[in-house]
Amino acid sequence: MKVHFILNGKAVEAEGRPTDRLLDVLRHVFHLTGAKEGCGEGECGACTVLLDGRTVLSCLVPLIQVDGRSVITVEGLAATEKGHAYLERFALKGGTQCGACTPGIVLSGAHLLQEHPHPSHREVAHALAGNICRCTGYQAIQRALSEEPEAVLDSTLLPAADAEREDGS
């Protein structure tokens, strides 16, 4: 079947089986390899992407579910000026070490910051509880997200859709 969706602000079409995992479609069809498979069963968060602005685990999302919707990956976040600045600060503060969890972590972080511009430590911990990091002990990630300047948190942090969204419902 053919599925149409907005990927990082651009209208795209993907051919596949309805049950193909969004993670595989992103990685193999669109060659967006930022999202990683850490466990394949929704535990680790390394495959986190934004679906209509909310965090989802792309290893658990079948392709058919993204029809008519908007998907943002780390590559999309990195492509906006503010997103890139946010990511660079995240790295400077030590938020990434091995980097395997990072694409998921920074998307969960961006989503949190848009909803709560000045998150408490508790809010950060809750928002990121679905993203396992085995390197940092989470402390540097906590610092990076708690100290993120408000200036980046407008809607231009994430790529805007440059095509009319089709209503998938």
Binding site: T73, E88, A91, P103, V106
Partner: peptide
């Protein structure tokens, strides 16, 4: 000092290529 790590940008932007990220 704490300069930006060499692999930092590649990793936060998702551009870093681990083995499974190589074209199949």
């Amino acid at each position: 000092s704490s300069p930006l790590r060499r692999d930092g940008l590649e990793k936060v932007t998702g551009a870093a290529r681990y083995l499974d990220d190589l074209p199949a």
